[in-house]
Design a binder for these strands. Structure first.
Ligand code: ZN
Ligand code: ZN
Ligand code: ZN
Ligand code: ZN
Lengths: 140, 140
DNA sequence: AATATATTTGCAACTTAGTTGCAATTTTGT
DNA sequence: ACAAAATTGCAACTAAGTTGCAAATATATT
């Protein structure tokens, strides 16, 4: 009696040719359920009563990063925050917005900026990443 | 027989109503001389034979940040990199470009993207920050 | 120049995100 | 069920950045 998200996680891992392990499935499910990037610590807290070791979580995220299922979204308080890559294109993720008043961070998946154009200097731009700062609806 | 950069550092500090201390002047001079953001460690190495304590450097950068003379540009290998704020506007700094091949990072002060427009959600955007990734001239 | 006050500096100790090595366990294909 | 390949958990480690506090320095006042 597998849940929908289990199946989906399995499919994602199979497609990426990764072993379907408990940790990977648990972490994918956590990331499917959230609407904003999570740190290792937050993922650990949300991935069931039996907490996985942090080394395992970091290594799991690393494997998911390598196959492109997950992205490092941003760093906050010295901790990387991770999210599924499904709201991103090849050349850019959606912007992340942090409120300077309350500190909350949001994914603004509706916004997309034109890609930067390198001005004749020989730089070839493959990806761009945008961070925004300002006031969130609750703090305006 | 003060050097030009000393005078300029003094002027910047006076204008910001900060004490003109040896460390502040030394760090401002280091940042004036470089063309890319530096970490605490790199600043320490470049600020003269008598290395300043890292706590002092962090606190000095903090004071310069607070008055807006310096910005945190990006994090790399878990270390923040700092630069003078003089190539930035109120609402955005220039983009920083990192080469995925050789790992070098460059300030692309010629590029500027239009500001993101918040889509009717109540988010008020004050600043934006762009990170770029691709191949540098040496690696194309 | 000497003094008083406010600020900054350096040191030692600490915090914590993330990493490394290795043995034990789990996944997968046969 | 078995063997090979990959993953997991643990303990110990690394290193960026922080905290508390006493000593040193910058500035303003006499
Ligand atoms: Zn807010
Ligand atoms: Zn996001
Ligand atoms: Zn390069
Ligand atoms: Zn720059």
């Amino acid at each position: 009696m597998k849940r929908n998200s289990d199946l989906q996680a399995h499919r994602m891992l199979k497609a990426a040719k990764l072993y379907c392990t408990k940790v990977r499935i648990a972490i994918l499910k956590v990331l499917m359920k959230t609407d904003k990037p999570l740190s290792q610590e937050q993922i650990a807290q949300r991935s069931g009563k039996k907490r996985f070791d942090k080394v395992t979580i970091y290594r799991t995220l690393e494997s998911l990063l390598k196959v492109g299922l997950v992205h490092k979204a941003f760093i906050e308080k010295r901790a990387w925050h991770f999210e599924l890559a499904h709201n991103c294109t090849e050349s850019q993720c959606h912007p992340h917005f942090t409120c300077t008043n309350c500190g909350s961070t949001h994914c603004l998946i509706e916004i997309s900026l034109p890609m930067a154009k390198s001005p004749h200097k020989g730089f070839v731009i493959h990806r761009q990443q945008v961070r925004l700062e300002g006031l969130c609806p609750a703090c305006v």
